[in-house]
C-alpha cells in the first residue's frame, strides 16, 4: 500500500496509471458497449469522415474505426500479457537455474541468452514468425521469446548476488533444501525487479506486435490489431489521415503509459535500480 501511494504521488505515473486503467477497461468491457461489429464490412461507407455515426470515421472496408480500436485493445492486451508473462516465467526459471547452480549450467544458459540477444530484436521476431507462420498465436510466441533474455539475465544477477550472502549460507548450513532456498528466500527478493521488468516489457511487446503487423507478418486481417490498422491505412494517410493516425497515437500512448507506470514502480520499489533496457523498435 505504501508502494501504491508512492507510485501515485508522481504525476507522470498517475497519468500513466489512469491511461492504463482506461486501456484495461476498454479491452475487457468495451466490446460489450460497441454498436458495430468490427468485422462487418460496409463498402459503401469506405473511409467515411468522422461523424456522430462513426466518431472516428471508417476504414478501407467501411468498418467503424472506433469499434475496431476497442476490439484491438483486447487483441493487444492478450498478445502482450500472455507473451510477456510466459516469457517471464521461462526467463525466471532459466535465470534461477543459471544463478543458483552456476558453473556449466550457468555457462550454457548464459550463452543461450547471448544467442537470443545476438539476434537483432525485430529480425528475431520476423524469423520466428516466418518459421511458425503468421497469426496471433505465433506473434505471442515471438513476444514471449523476446521477453526471456532480459528477465533471465536480471534474475541471474540477483541470484548470484544473494548466493554468497551470509543469510543464505546460514540457511544452507541449517540444512534447507535447494527448493526451499529458491522459493522462500531468493525469489521474494527478485519480485520488485521482476515487476518493473515485466511492466516495461509489456510496452515493448505492443510495439513488437504492431511492427510485425506493419510488415504484414503478425496478426492477420480481418482481426483488428492496431499496428495492422496503421499499416493498411498508411497508403491513404494523405487523404484519410484518421484511419492511421488514430492507431498510431494510441499505440504510442499505451506504450508510454506502461513506461510511466513502470518508472513509477521502479522508483517506488527501489530507487537505486539499474539495468539494461533491451528491445527498442
Amino acid at each position: 500500500m505504501e508502494t501504491l501511494r508512492k507510485i501515485l504521488k508522481r504525476k507522470t505515473s498517475l497519468i500513466g496509471a489512469i491511461i492504463l486503467t482506461v486501456f484495461f477497461l476498454t479491452a475487457l468491457i468495451g466490446p460489450f458497449l460497441c454498436r458495430y461489429d468490427p468485422l462487418q464490412t460496409n463498402p459503401k461507407q469506405k473511409y467515411a469522415q468522422a461523424s456522430s455515426e462513426y466518431p472516428l470515421g471508417t476504414d478501407y472496408l467501411g468498418r467503424d474505426v472506433l469499434t475496431r480500436m476497442v476490439y484491438g485493445a483486447r487483441v493487444s492486451l492478450s498478445i502482450s500479457f500472455i507473451g510477456v508473462l510466459s516469457g517471464a516465467l521461462i526467463g525466471v526459471l532459466l535465470g534461477l537455474a543459471a544463478g543458483y547452480y552456476g558453473r556449466w549450467v550457468d555457462t550454457l544458459i548464459s550463452r543461450l541468452i547471448d544467442i537470443l540477444l545476438a539476434f537483432p530484436g525485430l529480425l528475431l521476431a520476423i524469423m520466428i514468425v516466418a518459421i511458425l507462420g503468421k497469426g496471433i498465436e505465433n506473434t505471442i510466441i515471438a513476444v514471449s521469446v523476446f521477453s526471456i533474455p532480459s528477465i533471465a539475465r536480471m534474475i541471474r544477477g540477483v541470484v548470484i548476488g544473494l548466493r554468497e550472502s551470509e543469510y543464505l549460507q546460514a540457511c544452507k548450513a541449517m540444512g534447507a533444501s535447494d527448493a526451499r532456498m529458491i522459493f522462500s528466500h531468493i525469489l521474494p527478493n527478485t519480485v520488485s525487479q521482476m515487476i518493473v521488468n515485466i511492466t516495461l516489457n509489456l510496452g515493448t511487446a505492443i510495439l513488437t506486435a504492431s511492427s510485425l503487423s506493419f510488415l504484414g507478418l503478425g496478426v492477420q486481417p480481418p482481426s483488428p490489431e492496431w499496428g495492422a490498422m496503421l499499416s493498411s491505412a498508411r497508403d491513404v494517410i494523405r487523404t484519410y489521415p484518421l484511419a492511421s493516425i488514430v492507431p498510431g497515437i494510441t499505440i504510442t500512448l499505451v506504450v508510454l503509459s506502461f513506461s510511466m507506470v513502470g518508472d513509477g514502480l521502479r522508483d517506488a520499489l527501489d530507487p537505486k535500480l539499474q539495468y539494461r533496457f533491451r528491445g527498442n523498435l
Binding site: Q40, T41, Y60, P221, P222
Partner: peptide, 24 residues
C-alpha cells in the same frame, strides 16, 4: 487481402462460411 475480406462478408449473407487464409 481486402478482396478476400469483402468476399467473406458477402458470402456470409447466403450462408457460405469463409475461412480466410492470408499468405505471402
Amino acid at each position: 487481402v481486402e478482396m478476400g475480406e469483402l468476399v467473406k462478408s458477402q458470402l456470409a449473407e447466403v450462408g457460405i462460411n469463409v475461412n480466410l487464409e492470408v499468405v505471402e
